[in-house]
């Protein structure tokens, strides 16, 4: 999908119809190829899902989680929002975490950010962005938590952004570990394990930030221990 859209209304309508039809054509092509390769593929999927992974990633169009990890449909439960944030008052992400952990019993939760994140960059731009302000505030707070380290990074802003992307992932992974769903499931069953990764566009590879899950969990429990139910 590329190219400049035309400007006269009739052409615009035609253009919209074509790009619209393209999705359906592509989908039909994919479905028939899939069926040819594995005749029982869709019937099996219709029976239910039992993914091992929950992916919390950025909405950015360049990082389709299933494609960059080489997984098939049915293998990864996916939540994507602006800058892969996990805010404790956000019912949207909290429902996803709850459903994935308590109902689907995923084994891994991956918080994945990416270098060159528009959301992180926008958060560092001193500008009123309307409805995006409260959302991006969370990234500004990550900066505040790590102000000394970030301010010390010499040179251009790019290196600072890159580090902020990493620190943001680590903070959001911590937010996942702070949830009752994760703490209680881990105590009881030994999973899920929470990971923090960053995707790089220069090579298409995922970088593991090596979050020490058990260590973080222990530290977090000092203040956020939710394993005891009343």
């Amino acid at each position: 999908m590329s190219g400049e859209p035309p400007s006269n209304p009739k052409e615009v309508r035609k253009y919209l119809q074509q790009s619209h039809d393209r999705i359906f054509e592509s989908n039909r092509k994919w479905a028939s190829e899939q069926k040819a390769k594995h005749p029982e593929f869709f019937e099996k999927l219709a029976q239910g899902q039992s993914p091992d992974y929950l992916w919390i990633g950025c909405s950015d169009s360049r990082i389709p989680a299933e494609a960059v990890t080489g997984l098939e449909p049915g293998e990864m439960f996916i939540h994507r929002n602006i800058a892969n944030l996990v805010c404790n008052t956000d019912l949207n992400v909290m429902s996803v975490v709850n459903y994935a952990v308590r109902h689907l019993q995923v084994k891994h939760i991956i918080v994945c950010g990416h270098y060159g994140c528009g959301g992180v960059k926008a958060a560092m731009t001193p500008k009123d962005m309307g409805i995006l302000n409260p959302w991006l505030r969370n990234i500004r707070d990550v900066y505040r938590l790590h102000e000394a380290e970030l301010d010390d990074i010499p040179g251009d802003n790019d290196k600072k952004y890159d580090r902020l992307v990493e620190l943001n992932v680590i903070e959001q992974a911590r937010n996942v570990i702070k949830t009752a769903a994760v703490q209680q499931s881990y105590e009881e069953k030994g999973f899920p394990v929470v990971h923090g990764w960053v995707f790089g566009f220069n090579d298409g590879l995922l970088k593991d930030l090596n979050i020490n899950f058990e260590g973080e969990l222990e530290k977090i429990k000092k203040i956020f221990d939710l394993t005891k139910t009343e």
């Binding site: 092509k29 994919w30 993914p51 299933e66």
Partner: peptide
């Protein structure tokens, strides 16, 4: 969020 509906794959689109 269902694992069986990965948009880019089912629409046969590119990243």
């Amino acid at each position: 969020a269902d694992s069986r509906v990965p948009e880019t794959t089912v629409c046969n689109c590119k990243p």
